[in-house]
Design a protein around this nucleic acid. Structure first.
Lengths: 226, 226
DNA sequence: CCCGGCTCTTGACTCTTGTCATTTTTCCCC
DNA sequence: GGGGAAAAATGACAAGAGTCAAGAGCCGGG
């Protein structure tokens, strides 16, 4: 699966001529696990599209603690908010795995967006759906206890990155700190609750591997109803 | 200032012909304080644009507590997320004051959006900026204590609805519960902290009137740095 | 004008969650 | 393979924040 294949599930919505333009101008690079694709506080020069691998997007809070606001997977576009608002990045993008990411220069992307109603329309839908999710997250952060949010986060990770062949092991390695930063809690709290989940037979832990043993019960613990 | 004047600061970006079409199809209605413009869980038939007045958008959480995710003012568009994703509303819109709101039918709006790159582009920018704010809110909810969030919320309300002629009284009447739902905390906590702020000379309280006496200090309390 | 039902306020208490400190484990890199 | 640093786990403690309960104040409707 090469760069072109994967590039921009969304961007395929672009008109024919634009697609070729994009193809010509894009640059694909690879990032090793832990490498920074773009850094909070800097100005954007274009947008990125995840080709292969996994990217986390995180805000760093005042005290240096980070909050992961999004997990990106192949086909996802990242870095569009800063570009669209012509401001600095408010989040950093960091590879969770070795990843391949394509870059499209700002000018090209913006000019196409302004011409191509189809593409703008699709982008709009995507962003609207992100906003929807963000608002739900706000509500849950404000109202749900950490335990429920952790369970929800485990399900979210599964939704996003899927599982390995065994059908239960989450297909991504996250540190406890990263999990905590997804949930929005202290690392120790995340660790403690993971241990509880394990004790209760909901999950199995082997290092950074997490197996969801009893998804029913995890769902119940997450207490979702919207 | 009539409906037409105010209608859709954004929609003015629409092409000329579309503007007339919109003008012809739109319907303006008034809502008394407390009345519902649209209800979480129902399907959208179009979008709304706030003409005059103030509208709150709130998710209701599992336990019935509500989380206010947005405050809309004249010129703002509401109800677009559900429309764009063709799903039910995830939030309810309720008038905080007597308000006038215009409605544009779904089909018209969607067809214009798909044809008019300019409009899609503008919508996209707006939604992207909302998303930006939402993500910052997520980080703050996860990392900041209630005291700081309350201070931040007071400043946010001022930003959104401004102040009265005296230059210090917030130009909106919110119940303590609504303030709490904006901050993401219990009503009692919000009340207690407001009392503290008052004791510390940051604000003055007279019923639902809130005067920001010492904005410097409120900003410091909010502890903003992004 | 007064009653009844709100919202607001305050106090007391509980408990979830965060912080700090320490130990144990893991995992690189030499 | 071993040493060392980072990550994970666990315990003890503190404190922020939520809940419950009771009283005060305010407001609209009869």
């Amino acid at each position: 699966m090469n760069c072109q294949d994967r590039f921009g599930s969304i961007l395929f919505k672009a008109e024919k001529c634009n697609l070729e333009e994009i193809d010509a101008a894009k640059v694909c690079s690879t990032y090793k696990k832990g490498e920074v694709v773009f850094q909070e506080g800097t100005y954007p020069f274009g947008i990125y599209c995840v080709n292969t691998g996994k990217i986390k997007l995180s805000h760093s809070g005042d005290d240096g603690r980070e909050q992961i606001v999004r997990l990106a997977k192949p086909g996802d576009i990242i870095g569009y908010k800063a570009l669209l608002s012509a401001e600095r990045y408010t989040a950093s993008a960091i590879a969770l795995d070795d990843s391949s990411v394509c870059f499209i220069p700002k000018d090209l992307f913006m000019s196409i967006l302004q011409k191509d109603a189809n593409l703008s329309f699709e982008m709009m839908r995507i962003i609207a759906s992100e906003l929807r999710k963000a608002e739900t997250k706000i509500t849950h952060l404000a109202q749900k206890p950490v335990r429920e949010r952790l369970a929800e986060t485990l399900l979210f990770i599964k939704e996003t990155y899927g599982v390995e062949q065994d059908g239960t092991t989450l297909n991504v390695r996250l540190s406890r700190e990263e999990i905590a930063n997804l949930v929005g809690t202290a690392t120790e709290s995340a660790i403690r609750l993971l241990s509880e989940f394990k004790k209760d037979g909901l999950i199995e832990l082997q290092g950074k591997k997490i197996r969801l043993l009893n998804q029913e019960e995890i769902t119940r613990t997450a207490n979702l109803q919207d």
